[in-house]
Write a protein that binds this DNA or RNA. Structure first.
Length: 254
DNA sequence: CAACGCGCCTGCTAGC
DNA sequence: TGCTAGCAGGCGCGTT
């Protein structure tokens, strides 16, 4: 499932391939995957050129020279891949065709994800973005910021708190498990019971696992693919995620 | 407000 | 062997 490192990897891949491309056509096989009206597509997408690509939490933002943007959330099984022979397939929900006839495929087996057109002026108030917590790899994300935002959820487990996108943006199941393991904090611990030292360790571990995974191109446990169709390497070496019953990588027990 | 349960989806799999 | 119930899981929404 794409989390922050996977989404960041996709963003970097898109920058290398589709900036400067002009959109000639769009097609979609599922309304929830691409909910915009034909009118907004005609007015703000067709004929528009891609100017910039960025990320906020797990949401990808593709800015167009029409003043609008495409936002994409990959949710569980989404992929954005560029001009690969093996697509489209039964999971392809949206196809953007560019002026040079190359294509960007938005594939999403389970249809939880979406791609939508939005006026750039409305993005900061868009519900899925407005309430997002800080970016964990930014300088402004200190351990004090983490603690201050987390303790509002004192009676939730620390795992549930870290998964809450309004506390911090971009964590999912894999990296939450990994970060808590490295910080030596049990995921079921109540957020309100954690010490300053534990918050410091969790903060450090979050940044460490996210940066390490970005360096390796993300995880590919389920459906995640990079823009060029290749897989990331992080899950070749997880500490805990998907390793139930296997030997501990630190002490060899169990 | 926080916390929690549900629904959205498809495909894999454990259990019969 | 073939069927089905259960599960995976981010996140918006309604309810408590």
């Amino acid at each position: 499932m794409p989390e922050l490192p996977e989404v960041e990897t996709v963003v970097r891949g898109l920058r290398d391939t589709i900036i400067g491309q002009t959109i000639a056509r769009v097609s979609s096989d599922w309304d929830n995957s691409f909910p915009n009206s034909d009118q907004s597509v005609a007015d703000y997408l067709i004929g528009a050129t891609i100017e910039r690509i960025s990320r906020r939490g797990k949401i990808i933002r593709i800015d167009l020279d029409s003043g609008w943007a495409l936002l994409v959330h990959l949710k569980m099984t989404g992929q954005l891949v560029y001009d690969l022979d093996r697509f489209p397939d039964s999971t392809t929900r949206v196809i953007l065709t560019f002026d040079d006839q190359t294509k960007l495929y938005f594939n999403d087996q389970r249809k939880f994800g979406w791609m939508r057109l939005i006026d750039q002026a409305l993005i900061s108030s868009f519900d899925g973005i407005q309430r997002l917590g800080p970016e964990p790899l930014s300088d402004r994300f200190t351990w004090e910021v983490l603690r201050e935002r987390a303790v509002r959820h004192a009676r939730s487990s620390i795992k549930a708190t870290l998964l809450n996108q309004t506390v911090l943006a971009g964590m999912g199941n894999i990296y939450t498990d990994e970060a808590l393991f490295l910080a030596k904090v049990h995921p079921a611990r109540l957020t309100g019971s954690l010490s300053e030292a534990e918050f410091r360790r969790i903060h450090q571990s979050i940044r460490q696992v996210l940066q390490h995974s970005i360096d390796l191109g993300g995880s590919s446990r389920q459906n995640y693919l990079m823009v060029d169709g290749s897989k990331g390497d992080y899950l070749d070496e997880p500490y805990v995620y998907g390793r139930q019953g296997q030997p501990c990588r630190v002490c060899d027990s169990r």
